[in-house]
Amino acid sequence: MKQQLKYIFGGFVIGVVVLFSLISFGGGKVQAASSGTHTFKAANGSIKVPDHPKRIVVRTYMGQVLALKGNVVGATKWDLGNPFISSAVRHKIKDVGTPMNAEAVLKLKPDLIITDTEADVKSMSKIAPTVLLPYTKMRNINAITTRFGQLLNKQKEAKAWQKKFKQQAAKDRQRLDKAGIAKDKTVGIYELQDGKMYVFGTNFGRGGQALTTGLNFTLPKKVAEVDKGAGFKQVSIEALPQYDADYMFFTNYSSKGSGSQELKDLKANPVWKKLPAVKQGHVIQLPFQKMYYYDPYATMGQLKLVTDALLKAGK
């Protein structure tokens, strides 16, 4: 009986609060309160979000929020697999499932939800203000951090991160210049996925932003076309010479857990062997898990990875 009274009383209080809010903000249409919210233009419309969100749930964007010192309480397993974010930080964040589970999210009592997936919007919007940001729309790491600075009301933190990234990139650029690896060299990004070859632009992780926005390398013409289009393209091994670059950054992924045979087949292919980058030892293979992510943490970490790899490959 006591428990029932607790629920009844709680419901009454909530009803009074909601009614008061509707009256205060004019006929049920909530207006932006100078002390608590601001309007953010997202793919799902103009969303009123907290000026200072305290409990944020994310899909895909954990690193973006953490880099600006936002408090993430829930994220997907994919986010939590980011190797550039410390285990101490990851262990404080709950896995909300993929796709995000409404019940799991509700338990975390978020005041802001950020997703890259339109299918999440309807269910998540019932829990908290939900912002849809398709990742294909944000191609530059500085533009990305600026956008999140606006969303989270952390413009100062965004500018601080950009300054830090620029300074670190300049140091790594100097290391490359000293070694004679000029920025007029072209770079390309390639991946073997379950035996299929893909060419990537600069906004799908894999070191793309570290190489271009950071280290000022350029893409060869055909790869630049991919970058301006969908951002990735499956190509045949025979077509690879059309997409080759001075330095070919390469990752390998297999859903079977091992791509060793597929990789061996690629390296034995006569077309692959004849690529200039292969002949010169300028194919740079890096770990898939460390190159896959594209948030600020990963992009900063990839600066060192690609710079060290380039120095090892030589000019």
Rank of each mutant, 00 (worst) to 15 (best):
Q280F: 06
A88S: 11
V105T: 04
K109V: 05
R59I: 05
I189C: 06
Y61H: 04
L311Q: 12
H52I: 12
G97W: 00
Q167W: 02
Y297C: 00
M197V: 06
Q280V: 08
T98M: 06
D308C: 04
Y61R: 04
N44C: 10
V235H: 03
G195M: 09
G74A: 05
G36L: 15
G81N: 11
P129R: 08
E238F: 05
R139E: 06
S236H: 08
K48W: 01
D111T: 03
L310V: 10
G229V: 01
D111F: 00
L303A: 12
Q155R: 14
D184W: 08
V105I: 01
N44K: 09
F148H: 09
Y294I: 08
V306Y: 01
G26C: 10
Y294T: 10
G259N: 03
L5N: 13
Q162R: 06
T307W: 01
T98N: 05
A224G: 03
P50R: 14
D184K: 15
K48D: 09
A67V: 03
I284Q: 10
K256L: 14
L151N: 06
R175Y: 07
Y190L: 02
G63M: 00
V105G: 00
F20I: 11
H91W: 08
F249V: 05
I14T: 13
I56P: 00
P50Q: 15
D95R: 02
L263P: 12
S86P: 03
L211T: 03
G201D: 06
K279T: 08
L286A: 08
A268G: 05
Q289P: 03
P83C: 07
D120A: 09
V30H: 07
G74D: 05
P287H: 07
R55N: 07
G28Q: 06
V16M: 06
Q242P: 04
K107E: 10
N203E: 11
S260V: 15
Q150T: 07
L132H: 09
Q234D: 09
N142P: 02
L152N: 08
K264R: 12
A313D: 01
V49G: 09
G301R: 05
